[in-house]
């Protein structure tokens, strides 16, 4: 049983990292806490579902188009909504939260509820790892999670836009004096984060149904992981993802399944009491110094 817990804990941890990475990326670079994140995640699912079932696109193409469309939509959200309230943190939160709420509740209003809203698995097979059976979709999810994390690491270090990302992440005004177009870079960051959300959605949603309420859960999980890890820190997201991921699976195995969500919230509370800047957070240190 312990072997199963370890394997499924690992899978759950990667899932959380995957879910939180886009939110963290956007916040770390542009300072925008995108509360429409969960809605964009769900929207990617419904969009892909529509492309598959209404237009009959091949699965891989539907996935690619959905990810691109969600990224573009988020970029437009930045350009036409967030840019006007840029720097006013509360307004940014209210604006993104409002947009997210509108998207999710519109789906509910239009009747996108039910068990028929599912995406096919990418790989219909299961594998034995030791004595534990793991299905192909979960293994693909682990691979995609690792791939996206590595890609992010290379991208921010070895590409021009990636360096611009890191520049404005550390000091936007200084980045401006170096000739970096901060608004455009921030728009990219929001789009990029949303693209990651869509990618996470399309690899995770085949494990269940596309449900509006999942949009809220995803947002809460992403927030919990990012805040515990320290907002803006990639290493923080990975460590916090694994901490909460294993804690959830241990709770579900040795306690009750419905306590799983409580674990993330409890972790959130504890970290806010003990170290508000998060495990790897740098915000507070710098503020103290200045």
């Amino acid at each position: 049983m312990l072997e199963g817990v370890l394997i499924y804990g690992f899978i759950n941890s990667v899932l959380l990292v995957l879910v939180a990475m886009g939110f963290n990326l956007t916040f770390g670079i542009s300072g925008v806490a995108n509360f429409a994140y969960g809605a964009l995640y769900i929207m990617a699912g419904f969009l892909c579902w529509g492309l598959l079932n209404s237009l009959g696109l091949p699965y891989w193409l539907a996935v690619a188009v959905s990810v691109a469309a969600i990224a573009l939509l988020a970029g437009l959200l930045f350009r036409f909504v967030l840019l006007r309230v840029r720097g006013l943190v509360i307004s940014e939160v209210i604006a993104t939260f409002g947009v997210g709420l509108a998207i999710l509740e519109l789906f509910r209003y239009w009747g996108f509820i039910g068990f028929e809203y599912t995406l096919p698995v990418w790989l219909d097979a299961s594998f034995d790892i030791g004595e534990t059976v793991v299905d192909g979709q979960r293994l693909i999810m682990v691979a995609v999670g690792a791939g996206l994390t590595l890609f992010l690491w290379f991208f921010t270090r070895h590409s021009r836009i990636g360096r611009a990302f890191r520049g404005i992440a550390q000091d936007e005004r200084t980045a401006l004096t170096l000739g970096i177009n901060a608004d455009l870079t921030a728009a990219f960051a929001v789009a990029f984060g949303a693209g990651y959300a869509a990618m996470a959605a399309l690899v995770i949603l085949p494990l269940g149904t596309i449900a509006v309420n999942e949009g809220y859960n995803v947002l809460v999980n992403a927030l919990a992981v990012c805040i515990v890890g320290g907002l803006g820190s990639t290493m923080g997201v990975i460590v916090a993802g694994f901490l909460i991921g294993y804690a959830q699976i241990f709770t579900a195995t040795y306690g009750e399944t419905h306590w799983m969500m409580i674990v993330s919230l409890a972790a959130l509370l504890v970290i806010l009491l003990v170290k508000p800047s998060g495990l790897f957070g740098k915000q507070k240190e710098l503020e103290e110094r200045i």
């Binding site: 890191r166 550390q170 000091d171 005004r173 200084t174 004096t177 200045i290």
Partner: peptide, 12 residues
């Protein structure tokens, strides 16, 4: 080019 009165390096 300009400098800032309150220094603004890339701290990290």
């Amino acid at each position: 080019a300009r400098t800032f009165q309150m220094v603004k390096p890339f701290y990290q």
